[in-house]
Amino acid sequence: MTTTHRRQLPKASLLALGAAGLVAGASIALFWPRPSEFRLTVLPPGPVSPDFRLVDFDGQPRSLADYRGQVVVIFFGYTRCPDACPAALFKLAQVMKRLGPASAQVRVLLITLDPERDTPQLLKSYVTAFDPRFVGLSGTTAQIDHAAASFYVAHFKAPTSNDYYAIDHSTATYVIDAQGQRRLIGAMNTSIDDFAHDLKLLAGRLKQGASP
């Protein structure tokens, strides 16, 4: 009696232990915070979804949903920006070159924070000077404010003289995945290598049709 009991108990507990181990293992595999495969800062989905309703430099109304199915890279800036904006756009142009064929899945957008002075023609000649595939978006002040707020982008007009003003602004670069979710954020000092690495990862999943 005791012997069979002894034989049964370990069997049952081993089974239970095994099952518990499996569950635990699976849970760990699923939920354990792994070191990120991305090199840029990974953003958790925020309470506000990124969105915009703007007009591109050819006069086409554009919303973020229009770019669903593509990896979207967004920089908020303005053409009268002395160095942060040209540096960011120049870097993204280098990133696009580095991506090679994968760049077909990536769309780079500049959203102007200066709709009063950045005319569609100026936006077009400006952004396409960096890469002919880049798109510039503008809109009414209210539309720009709404777009910036949905990305948590701060921007303020800062007069420097009687007839000139600068725009103080966040210099982050936002990466939106093919499902329209905010995924990554790059900074002024993020390297071309790191941008290319992460965009390739997101674009690669897109190509395979796997869920990101």
């Binding site: 002395p82 160095d83 800062a158 420097t160 600068a166 103080d168 210099t171």
Partner: peptide, 15 residues
């Protein structure tokens, strides 16, 4: 003009 840029809390400012 002469300007100075500086970053404050992730925002680039110019004065």
């Amino acid at each position: 003009e002469m300007h100075t840029s500086y970053t404050e809390g992730g925002t680039m400012r110019m004065r």
